[in-house]
Nucleic acid binder design. Structure first.
Lengths: 205, 205
DNA sequence: CGACTACTATGACGGCGGTCATAGTCGACG
DNA sequence: CGTCGACTATGACCGCCGTCATAGTAGTCG
């Protein structure tokens, strides 16, 4: 959240991600990024000779690393690690933000994908890598909980998909209900995978 | 898919949705929309005096109506209606497109949400209405299958979220696997709701 | 001190995109 | 025929945006 400290270069990447989050890539002008980062405009062409494309790609990469890093911190915060607990924390990050700061922003990787996936292949690849990193972190966490690697990967995909989609719905409706709904509905399915039981049932009534 | 027939006004709305699907709202220029629709540029300001905002909002509304309409057609195509069967058809529409035509486009409502949700409230409302219409159609279909209204609504939210998120991942990775994964993983959970059993288990092994 | 590199500062340029203004076509109706 | 309304056609305007060019500062090393 803090923009201060760390070099101006990193600040600009961070600010780019913040602005992309809100209005997509085209709404994140280079001048805006510099101003938001409190950095001189002239530094943009110095640090990012590849132009906006490079800046956007680095912002997407930063978001991927950030999301993956959060997974570890979520795990550490859980008293007893469970798939539903992890997913709940991942979702809670968004409900907290939306409740305290409003529904201004979405996922920067999602925005970059929607805006650039077709035209700018390097950005699409950056988004793919970011999702892959995030997915890998979640899948590894699930595997640590005793889920088989194949199902861990599949469930991680399901978690990411549901979260991204719920973020979208929540922003459109300006209501966190989609987020809470997917958390609640997915919880039993997620936890069922950790027992090593049938994929369907976990705890009988 | 057909651009021909129907008045030029409707064609332009349709074309706008098509272009928004690909590169977001900012990539859908007014001149591009007119050209893509084979309509005269001068007609834009005649049919859409509200400017681009109106055009985008109508495109989003069109997409919502289209998605809701598809639900009914999917139901009709199913030999025996089940929640997982419906979801499979909804997903299949996307896997079919991506396999035959490439990963060029996503959901226009999602793109409009990501691009305009914060700045243009009328567009955000249009997106919310579109999602609501789509959600209502899915929930009604589930209720017809014997799912209680509350769970039908919750599962519809889950289906929409997972589908939208999987579309995003699929476009980034240029691979339909996220789509097939969510279909497979969600199927037992969805069908479990139709039996009226416990929310967790349906068919014991 | 001089030179060199890293970084900053700012103005200009070219293109694009939404919108407006103005005029033109065409059919209907009286 | 005249007029009116619906629609089409085009060019111009203005602002924004990414990029480039050029120059300036500052710290460092020889």
């Amino acid at each position: 959240m803090t923009v201060s400290e760390r070099g101006p270069r990193e600040r600009m990447v961070f600010s780019a991600a913040q602005l992309i989050r809100r209005g997509g890539v085209s709404a994140a002008g280079m001048r805006d990024v510099a101003e938001h980062a409190g950095a001189p405009r002239g530094s943009l062409q110095h640090y990012f000779p590849g132009g906006k494309e490079q800046l956007v790609n680095e912002a997407v990469g930063w978001a991927g690393r950030y999301a993956a890093g959060r997974v570890a911190r979520f795990l550490a915060a859980l008293p007893v690690p469970t798939p539903s607990g992890l997913f709940g924390e991942m979702v809670r990050q968004w409900t907290d933000e939306y409740e305290t700061s409003g529904f201004a922003g979405g996922c920067p990787v999602a925005a970059a994908t929607a805006d650039c996936a077709e035209r700018v292949d390097s950005t699409r690849q950056a988004a793919s890598a970011a999702f892959a990193q995030w997915h890998g972190a979640v899948a590894a966490a699930l595997a640590d909980m005793g889920v088989t690697p194949e199902r861990a990967s599949a469930l991680a995909t399901l978690m990411l998909s549901s979260l991204e989609g719920a973020i979208l719905l929540a922003r459109a409706e300006q209501d966190i209900r989609p987020l809470t709904t997917v958390t609640r509905e997915l919880a039993p399915l997620l936890d069922a995978a950790v027992t090593g039981n049938s994929p369907r049932c976990s705890t009988p009534p």
